[in-house]
Nucleic acid binder design. Structure first.
Length: 606
RNA sequence: GCGCCCGUAGCUCAGCUGGAUAGAGCGCAGGCCUCCGGAGCCUGAGGUCACAGGUUCGAAUCCUGUCGGGCGCGCCA
């Protein structure tokens, strides 16, 4: 492997490409300086400091800066500027560091040798699609669960953000060398599924010609009718029962009665009249059809899972019972008012929670505890759950459960995603989930396309409310960030097509040898920006903030467009030309890699 | 009432876990340009970082309180 930077580390071997972040290199130098001062007795040997190097915001402050001296001033009782002087004196000589300055209250500013900046181009062209990936995650096994919408209907736009966010975070973690397991928890065991089954059956009966009302609490979507039709096509009148028998003696439905009581009674009636096998057939038809739809939808959205985990399987395997037993052994369960409670308030929750209802049925929370225990037992070190922000009240109880089961509460990390509000220009798009008239994720995708949807969804911090402008997302203008970034990529490709038309050839090696021809301000700016890509991926992954990557890509694209407008790449001077082509090819590669992590395509032409 | 999240330029938002003169895009004002790919480029105005205290060398960032907005607070999932 060719060294990226021409410096050597302590052991005298070349610093490997993957570790060759300038920041880390400077940190190393500073640590050496501190150690040297400790040996000399200029610093107390028991002092521990974490050396941090940041990029300078202002180029007048050089390229990198550290506040080390400021941070050490207090513990050592020495004035920061004096400390800074000592540190600078103790700093080992290094070829890439051109100048070190002390500024302001005691900052140490590093000026990097411009020649070292060129090496990023060599690195990118060498690493190609591996550029920006690292091993800092050390193969840590991470489980990430996201979307996990009930399979009672198609995904809507509210799920879209969780999907885009979860998938991007998963990609980022994988990029820094974590072993990531993506999972969808299929809630196929709860009462909601029975409501779906019964909704389908009623539609089916209507299809058969029975005249009976649709339950107020049933699922009203068009898809329910389609599933009912499919059942009818397969079984004809096989599941038909007279309306009078179905409705006989049922309690009053809303508005006069209680719709919850009514639907539960209707479920019981369906079970009774159909028998277990036939009822399961309807249930299964609904589940399979909707799950298939969700899968296909997500697939087209660029989201893939390693596993679709069935709640029903979990329940049938006895895992819920096991989890409850374990809690009981730990003394966390007690009985009250006929129900069994988990004493979560002892672990920070605001009140205790029911795990087994008065009617003997385990709650959703109980199976969720079992599910998370199962994840841990599968050997994952970190569990990341991505939830809608409306579920935030649920976090303390699940954390409490983790703790009661003997797990480190930090092994569960819940990421809350705020809702997105859709706009068309200035106009807000109405989204009423209740009436079944919601905007589906599929509709969104059809309107703005997968790429724009994925990008827009993660453009903001997850905990920030998102205004999603559909009109902007489809516009072919520089105001549209996706278009702007993709366009930069296509533009590079276009330059290479132009090159061919002119009958010239791109000599990469010659370009690499002539990188020092890249002396323009625009070129220098691009080089520093490119060098920031790996750090950006690293930080975005560590902080679970894909929006940092979208912002970076926008910046890189903007810088490229500026460069494009200021300078001609296809010049007669072939050395300069090849150097510039290498630079823009590096830009293209960084954009392609970044977009790839967001599952957004990088088009060669638009 | 309690809890979680948010409050930064006219608008939409960044701000690298406490650093130097708080940034970008759009919009606005002025001036150039027609170039490899669709209009671009440069300059400028615009801020009490919601408010008030506190922590310290140093706060948009951390702590407390107040105000404003969003969302939760089931033996639903």
């Amino acid at each position: 492997m060719q060294p990226v930077l021409g410096f050597k580390d302590n052991s005298g071997s070349f610093v490997s490409q993957l570790k060759a972040f300038m920041k880390e290199h400077l940190q190393g130098l500073l640590e050496q300086a501190v150690n040297r001062l400790k040996e000399q007795g200029d610093l107390p040997s028991d002092i521990t400091v974490s050396v941090r190097v940041d990029r300078a915001r202002d180029s007048a402050h050089g390229d990198f800066a550290t506040n080390l001296a400021l941070a050490m001033a207090k513990p050592t009782g020495q004035p920061p500027r004096r400390l800074a002087e000592k540190i600078v004196q103790a700093l080992p000589a290094d070829p890439v560091v051109r100048k070190v300055e002390i500024a302001g209250p005691g900052f140490i500013n590093f000026h990097i040798d411009p020649a070292a900046q060129f090496q990023i181009v060599r690195q990118i062209l060498g690493q190609r699609d591996r550029f920006g990936r690292s091993h800092s995650g050390q193969g840590r096994r991470i489980h990430i669960e996201f979307v996990s919408a009930n399979p009672t209907g198609p995904l809507h736009v509210g799920h879209g953000r969780g999907a885009a966010y979860g998938a991007s975070v998963a990609n980022l973690l994988q990029a820094i060398g974590c072993q990531v397991h993506r999972e969808y928890y299929v809630n196929d065991a709860g009462r909601q599924m029975d409501i779906l089954a019964v909704s389908i059956w009623i539609r089916y009966l209507q299809r058969c010609g029975e005249s009976l009302p649709f339950p107020a609490n049933g699922y009203r979507g068009e898809y329910v009718i389609e599933i009912a039709d499919a059942v009818y096509a397969e079984l004809a009148d096989g599941l038909r029962r007279p309306a009078a028998e179905v409705l006989d003696g049922l309690p009053e439905d809303a508005p006069d009665g209680d719709k919850e009581v009514y639907i539960d009674a209707l479920i019981e009636r369906a079970r009774l009249l159909l028998g277990k096998d036939a009822y399961d057939k309807v249930f299964q038809a609904g589940l399979e059809s909707i799950l298939a739809d969700i899968r296909e939808d997500l697939e087209a959205f660029g989201v893939r899972y390693d596993e679709w985990f069935s709640e029903r399987r979990l329940v049938h395997s006895g895992r819920v019972q096991q989890a409850l037993d374990r809690l009981r052994e730990g003394g966390w369960l007690y009985e009250s008012e006929g129900a069994i409670w988990f004493a979560s308030s002892r672990l920070g929750d605001e009140k205790d929670r029911v795990v087994v209802r008065e009617n003997g049925q385990a709650t959703y929370f109980a199976s969720d505890i079992a599910y998370h225990l199962d994840k841990l037992e599968r050997g994952f070190e970190l569990l990341i759950d991505v939830w809608g922000a409306d579920h935030h009240g649920y976090v303390p109880r699940l954390k409490a459960a983790m703790q009661a089961l003997g797990a480190d509460p930090d092994s569960l990390e819940v990421r809350l995603v705020q809702f997105a509000v859709l706009y068309r220009g200035k106009e807000r798009v109405p989204m009423s989930t209740r009436a079944g008239e919601f905007v589906t994720l599929r509709q969104l995708r059809e309107e703005v396309g997968k790429d724009a949807a994925r990008f827009f969804y993660v453009m903001r911090k997850a905990e920030q409310h998102l205004d999603f402008d559909l009109k902007l997302a489809v516009s072919q203008s520089n105001d549209n960030p996706v278009y702007y970034v993709q366009y930069a990529h296509a533009r590079v490709c276009s330059v290479f097509r132009q090159l061919e038309e002119k009958g010239w050839k791109h000599d990469v090696d010659r370009g690499l040898e002539c990188l020092n021809r890249l002396t323009e301000n625009h070129e220098q700016a691009l080089l520093t920006l490119l060098a920031r890509y790996p750090e950006t991926v690293e930080r975005a992954a560590r902080m679970r903030e894909p929006h940092q990557l979208t912002h970076y890509l926008r910046e890189l694209a903007a810088q490229f467009h500026t460069y494009y407008n200021a300078h001609t790449f296809l010049v007669e001077d072939d050395q300069l030309r090849d150097a510039r082509l290498n630079l823009i090819e590096a830009v293209r590669q960084a954009i392609a890699n970044g977009l790839g992590l967001l599952d957004v395509t990088a088009p060669r032409s638009m």
